[in-house]
């Protein structure tokens, strides 16, 4: 199942995404949380902390700048550019989610 979370900035979009992702994971489901916002804060709201969130954002910027070889599939992307958050939620910070290919 894929869930998109949208709304005007400041409406509570990221808090809603984070609580939903962790609640689903607590039910024993495998959850991938994708931060597609231009102002990426989902890591903080998920509880991975601001340092780890910053690290993921900077990895994403390297990927955008083409400094890092692009990964083959989602699993690899999350292994290399994501992190494991509380309750087992896997978090990835990404751009251009509307593009057809990963990476």
């Amino acid at each position: 199942m894929k869930i998109a979370v949208v709304g005007k900035g400041g409406a509570g979009k990221t808090t809603t995404s984070a609580v939903l992702a962790r609640s689903l994971a607590r039910q024993g489901r495998e959850v991938v949380a994708l931060d597609c916002d231009t102002n990426p804060n989902l890591g903080i709201s998920l509880g991975v902390g601001d340092l780890e969130t910053e690290r993921l954002v900077s990895l994403r910027e390297q990927l955008d700048d083409g400094d890092v070889e692009h990964a083959a599939d989602w699993d690899e992307i999350l292994d290399r550019f994501g992190t494991d958050g509380p309750d087992g939620v896997r978090l990835g910070v990404i751009t251009r989610i509307e593009n057809p290919d990963p990476g």
Binding site: A4, V6, V32, L34, P102
Partner: peptide
């Protein structure tokens, strides 16, 4: 590529 995982995508504002 996500298999059986549930994807929660926090889109841009």
């Amino acid at each position: 590529e996500f298999g059986t995982s549930i994807v929660v995508a926090d889109l841009e504002a």
